[in-house]
């Protein structure tokens, strides 16, 4: 019996590691860091790497939701707008008597989650294609934001944000720490709970999932709500790091989050992948951006290099193997 058990779940082998996309992405990141560290003095310094991680933390947080949604077979094009809502919203809802700013942050996180939930409602019950639903939501939010905040930057000063943006705990920036903690939770939920398994089920075959007793609608709404929450959290972190929010601050994070998810080996078709790949994916993304900046090329060349590198990395590893 024990023998049979053994053969039915093959033991871990080094070869499995080589097929593991998360591991491969980590390997690429390390390789790039080592090469760049030798080629460019200062790149490998602790301060610079810490700075890269801080930048990656924001993308990584947004990409938690994006990873969840993509694994569940959808896509969320509203994360950029939600990041902005959060970064602009916290200063706006600052109340008297809420000295630490905790209350304002909580209100905004609830709002961000609700926006995601509305996305889920549209996708699950109105059966609107996720791309359209979230795109329309992004357009809607953009309008609301300009109405409320206008074109000016809004500063926020409260202790919580200041701490998030500047504090170091044993040398590690608070933002990176926040990312690490939330990532741990995100990975645990994805891989060690039935909810996580439902996401994989939904992305691979929604019909079979429904017939197996999975509540597809509830799961869909939950996953978009998580995406809203993650984007909201990222917005708070940006606000802390920047000190001010303005309309459009979240825009770059939409494409970055999708790129991080895909670079991390999660199939855009849904049903497979892991946040464990998205983490190095986000780091890889900021590393590429940093290297391109280092090259000291014009904006045009930087953009071309960035696009080409993403395409190249995809070609190397991200091919959608023949799925039928």
């Amino acid at each position: 019996m024990n023998q049979a058990n053994h053969s039915r779940f093959p033991a871990w082998s080094p070869r499995a590691l080589l097929r593991n996309r998360a591991f491969l992405t980590v390997a690429i990141v390390i390789l790039v860091w080592v090469v760049a560290g030798f080629a460019k003095p200062g790149f490998g310094s602790y301060g610079h790497l810490r700075y890269l991680l801080e930048l990656a933390a924001v993308i990584g947080l947004v990409a938690i939701g994006q990873t969840y949604v993509v694994i569940a077979g959808g896509i969320d094009l509203s994360v950029g707008a939600i990041v902005t809502v959060s970064a602009v919203g916290v200063p706006l809802v600052a109340l008297s008597g809420d000295g630490s700013g905790t209350f304002a942050v909580l209100i905004i996180l609830v709002a961000a989650t609700s926006i995601g939930f509305l996305n889920g409602l549209g996708v699950a019950y109105l059966r609107i294609h996720p791309m359209i639903m979230t795109l329309a939501m992004a357009t809607f939010l953009q309008g609301v934001l300009i109405l409320i905040a206008g074109g000016t930057a809004i500063s926020a000063q409260n202790p919580l944000l200041a701490w998030l943006g500047n504090a170091r705990i044993i040398g590690i920036p608070a933002g990176v720490l926040l990312w690490a903690v939330v990532s741990g939770a995100a990975l645990a939920v994805l891989h060690a709970t039935p909810f996580g398994a439902r996401l994989y089920a939904l992305g691979a075959n929604p019909l079979a999932s429904a017939l197996s007793g999975i509540n597809v609608q509830a799961t869909t709404m939950a996953v978009y709500a998580v995406s809203g929450l993650a984007a909201g959290l990222a917005g708070v972190l940006i606000l802390g790091m920047n000190g001010q929010g303005y309309v459009g601050i979240g825009d770059p994070y939409l494409l970055a989050s999708i790129a991080a998810v895909v670079l991390g080996g999660t199939s855009i078709l849904g049903g497979s992948g892991s946040y464990a790949g998205t983490i190095p994916g986000a780091i890889l993304l900021v590393t590429i951006t940093a290297l391109i900046t280092v090259v000291n090329a014009s904006a045009g060349w930087r953009s071309i290099l960035f696009g080409s590198l993403i395409l190249l990395l995809l070609l190397l590893s991200g091919r959608e193997s023949q799925r039928r």
Binding site: R8, N205, I214
Partner: peptide
């Protein structure tokens, strides 16, 4: 009926994933 890209063992657990408490 099935989630073709997932493992045999995983497919067998599916109804339980639907039934169990999500978190």
């Amino acid at each position: 009926g099935l989630h073709l890209i997932h493992s045999i063992a995983w497919n067998m657990m599916l109804p339980d994933f639907g039934k169990a408490r999500g978190l």
